[in-house]
Amino acid sequence: MAPVGALLRAVRRYNTSMWTFIHKLGSPPWFFGFSGSLVRWLLPITVTLLLVGAIWGLLVAPPDFRQGNSYRIIYIHVPAAVVALAGYYVMAFAGAVSLIWRIRMADVTMRAAAPVGAILTAIALVTGAIWGKPTWGTWWVWDARITSMLILLFLYLGVVALFEAYENKTAAARACAVLSLVGTVNIPIIYKSVDWWYSLHQPASIKFTGESAIDASMLYPLLLMIVAFYCLFVLALLLNMRAELVWTHRESGWLKQLVGDT
């Protein structure tokens, strides 16, 4: 029975430490210190990952046998799209936390995630359009994925605009939380419906990003870039949150002390 007891104790210890960590995250002074050291690590890591991934994808990976070199846009297009979608869920989760437990840090997270997600969505759209020109011969095609990204951009812009429209920022955060939660319920439905809509109107042969197996020499840089974009999202999120915190807590003692120490 001894190992079981040890395991249970370890789980309990892990559990308490996890919950203490989560509780600490809700406290601005602790978060400020924690995020400061995190950012110091994350910034060089992100830059390195992005540079390595970009050079690998642009220069080292072989060209696609059908699309030639234009496929190299995939190394920014797909990561931007993946992280933009994940960013919406981050935002909505923060919104749920803010609605249920009224934690101010969750408001700050949601507020910071919206513009970052909107920019990533815009990047996915623009690179998709540029990719479309050599592939389909036009800048814009009402392809299922591109159309879904466009709607995601509208969802993001709605949250940003709603936040800006409210003068009372606490109310703004709660309104945006309601909106982003409804959006989260809707996103899978939107994606599925756009998918069906597209497959009904287009013959399947035009679909060029099919489920064909991608070669490892092309896949590894793609995975690397996806990781890099995730890091970038977290980095931009933390930096935005820190800038916001410094301003909203300018009257607080802990921040005054930090400023005085520098």
Binding site: L58, N69, I76, H77, I123, V126, I130, P134
Partner: peptide
Amino acid sequence: MDGHGFYVWLAYALT
């Protein structure tokens, strides 16, 4: 890039 350079570099710059 075999004629695709403009598009690829434009996309990377705009990103």
